[in-house]
Structures are given as C-alpha cells and as structure tokens.
Design a protein around this nucleic acid. Structure first.
Lengths: 121, 121
DNA sequence: CCCATAGTTCGGAACTTCGGAACTTATGGA
DNA sequence: TCCATAAGTTCCGAAGTTCCGAACTATGGG
C-alpha cells in the first residue's frame, strides 16, 4: 500500500478544491469530517442520505479530497482517520470554503447533502 | 439556432457553479466578463494567456457558464453579448463567487488565469 | 495460522471534454 | 438581389474521466 500523499498547502490549487467540492456527495463528506471534530473513519462517512456508497467509490472520493488538500488522512492500524485542513486552506484562500459550504447548506433539502451553517472546528 | 436557455436564479445549483468555475480557463472568462463592464462578445474572450481557444470549445465554455447561471447571453445581430449575473448569484449564495475569484486571483501567476482582486460591476 | 475488518487496486462500461469541419444566421457591399 | 464575410453553433470521433464490482493487501485478534 502506497503511503498517502498530501500536497503542501502552497501547492494546493483552487481548481482542485472546486473540482473536489463540485460533487455534492464529496462536499457532504467534507462537511461531515469537519463537523465531526475533524476525525472520521472512511466508513463512518459511507452513507449520505439514502445512498450507500460502494467502498471503491468511497476510497476514491476520499483520495480526491486528500489530493485537493482538503483533508489529511492517517492510517491507524487497519483504519484511516481523516482530519480537515480547514485552517490551512482558510489561511491560503480566505472565505473560499465558507462560501462553498454555505452555498450547499442554503441550497438545503433539494441537494443530496446536509450541512448546517458553517462554524469551523 | 435554438434560443439561449437561462436557468431561473432559484434553479441555480451550487454544484453547477463549482463545476463551471473548476476550470481555470472558464473562471478567467467569467472574471473578464465581470470586469469588462459586464458585456463581452464571445470572441473578445477567446485568448487567455498564450492559448488560442478553438471556436467550438469557446462556444461550449460559454454555454457551461450560462447554464450554470453565471452569465446571461443575448444575441445582437451576428454576435452574442454576455453579462455576468453576479448580483443575483451573490444574493442567492453570499460570498461564494468572491471566495472563488479571490482564490484564483491570489493563486496568481502559477495558474493559467489572471484575475485582479474582486470588486463587482 | 486463520479469520474478519478496513481500505486499495484493477478493469470495463458509461459518461464527459476537446477540437476540426461543416453548418446557420446576420450584415455589408457591388 | 446576390455574394462574401464574420460570429457562433452543431456534429462527431478521439482522448480522458468517473463509477463500481471483484479481487487484492494490510492489520489485529483468537
């Protein structure tokens, strides 16, 4: 198993973040990781709404979030814990994440993704 | 030629906006349309940096921006004029566009896209 | 050692994006 | 009026991306 790759914060590109969060499912995962005290096993995030996400897709979504610089993942034994990198990303691109997550939150019921109003950490 | 379709502002989805702006070229077009007094023929937007964009791709990029709800296009004789819908989008998703365009702007030279700091209209 | 659990990788089907060539539509002469 | 030209759009094939089931690889416990 290859070691997990994380971009340095200064290598994080806005287009990667937008692409990662342009999927409502991924945006919901990110919101959940952020709100859950910034720690979450991959599988804990596996059901969003009605939908059960297959493991392989889940693994891939998490990878997209990680490589976009949005989360940090560490292996702990057999599981992986995910932390949001909100503070770093916020310092580099102020207002970006709040704007995006609030947009999804205010879009509300109609999207597939539930996110309360934003308040990091 | 089919009449141009524009979503009503309440039908605009955050994921469509993120997807549209996840392409640095499209983000640069949008920034240009906004800054150029909100009016711009498609062809006026055709050269971004070094790159000359083929007409068919350009037409498609403009369509993506339009269908995401970011711009309004009107035919005037043989050309199409594009207006940004900043105010409407800002009212629906406060802070979203500013966050995104500022992120690209502060990413600056390294991306393929030049956008000054944001100040609508 | 064997099993269960948590993730990852592989590979094919379905979808999206890119760009060249052909088409449409409007305008401005001769 | 008829033709030429300019601005966009559509079509379609090649290239790339995403999704998900099946097979695989760690790790920890009994």
């Amino acid at each position: 198993m290859r070691p997990l790759f994380h971009p340095a914060i200064e290598d994080v590109r806005p287009e990667a973040i937008l692409h990662a969060l342009a999927d409502p499912g991924r945006a919901a995962m990110f919101a959940k990781i952020m709100q859950a005290g910034c720690v979450e096993a991959c599988s804990a995030v596996a059901s969003l709404g009605e939908r059960v996400i297959p493991k392989s897709s889940l693994s891939n979504h998490i990878k997209v979030l990680r490589e976009a610089g949005l989360i940090r993942s560490e292996r702990h034994g057999t599981e992986v814990r995910n932390h949001s990198r909100w503070a770093e990303v916020e310092a580099r691109f102020p207002g970006l994440l709040a704007g995006i997550l609030n947009a999804y939150a205010s879009d509300g019921g109609s999207g597939s993704c539930s996110t309360g109003p934003i308040d990091p950490r």
